[in-house]
Write a protein that binds this DNA or RNA. Structure first.
Length: 269
DNA sequence: CCTAATCCCTGTAAGC
DNA sequence: TGCTTACAGGGATTAG
């Protein structure tokens, strides 16, 4: 479900709502989502204070005073709602010592939660590419990666070993704003175009964060509210509607098993 | 090694 | 209405 801007929004919300609170109890309603035994998970959370909340790619990292980390991957439909109402999709409950609580809801049960002593215990983090806002994520870095693959550029943007945090919505929007075809092979993209795509990756993600993310179906922020960026989407989920730039019909194709939306007129090359 | 296909699970919407 | 099918924002694994 959520991509980098949505996860970043949740992280910022959590830093306001639960920082310095003490988890008196972690209640596991559905152990399927855990990557460890429920008893171990709950024991390592019990009476732990929350230091701060950060993010790596689309994963939420809750740092505990014990120096351990509660790592949550929301995947497609996970939600973290502060003082929300429990429903049939509530899988885990975190109860704080002041009586407040944080609910982990997940319709599809794809999400993953675990408590680890070190982040490198999580294999996913070890293969993840740079953060889009990190200084090492440069056009030169992109060029080196693009140079060695003939895959379509859309698939490369979605590849988290290339860069962390971009999902299907933002890959489509970034390429539209860059006026690059999602089908274009990465190795055939010029440095001038790479610079444009690099710029748009950062701009689109920043703008989406400023609008608290995009809510298609399931995404909610830390207070259970929808994001506003979906009102600004130019192509995503707009098959058959007019391109905001040229008025031609937005097309949909399948790439890497996922829908790609684009304008065949504005994104020719 | 690289890339594409498949699968995990549940719910909703569209098509017939 | 009721049934079937396609699809959904992620990511790991398998197959080629």
């Amino acid at each position: 479900m959520p991509e980098l801007p949505e996860v970043e929004t949740i992280v910022r919300d959590l830093n306001k709502s639960i920082q310095r609170k003490i988890i008196s109890e972690g209640i596991v309603l559905d152990a399927f989502l855990l990557r460890q035994k429920a008893g171990d998970f709950s024991r390592r959370l019990k009476n732990q204070a929350v230091k701060k909340i950060t993010r790596r790619g689309k994963a939420i990292i809750i740092q505990l005073v014990s120096e351990e980390f509660l790592v949550i991957q929301l995947m497609m439909t996970g939600q973290l709602i502060f003082n929300g109402l429990e429903d049939r999709h509530t899988r885990i409950k975190f109860i704080f010592s002041d009586g407040s609580r944080l609910l982990y809801n997940d319709q599809r049960r794809f999400g993953q939660l675990r408590v680890v002593a070190a982040l490198d215990e999580i294999k996913h983090f070890n293969i993840l590419g740079p953060e889009p806002f990190a200084k090492e994520f440069t056009p030169a870095f992109m060029q080196e990666y693009f140079h060695k693959t003939s895959r379509p550029v859309k698939n490369v943007l979605l590849d988290h070993t290339f860069v962390a945090g971009i999902g299907n919505i933002y890959a489509c929007e970034i390429l539209f704003r860059s006026q690059v075809s999602p089908k274009q092979q990465a190795c055939r993209i010029s440095l001038a175009q790479i610079k444009i795509i690099h710029h748009q990756i950062i701009e689109v993600l920043k703008e989406a964060i400023a609008h608290r993310g995009s809510s298609m179906r399931n995404y909610r922020d830390g207070a259970g509210k929808k994001g506003r960026f979906n009102e600004r989407l130019a192509v995503y989920a707009r098959e058959g509607l007019p391109c905001p730039r040229c008025q031609q019909t937005i097309l949909r194709i399948t790439q890497a098993g996922r829908s790609t939306f684009y304008c065949g007129h504005c994104q020719k090359k």
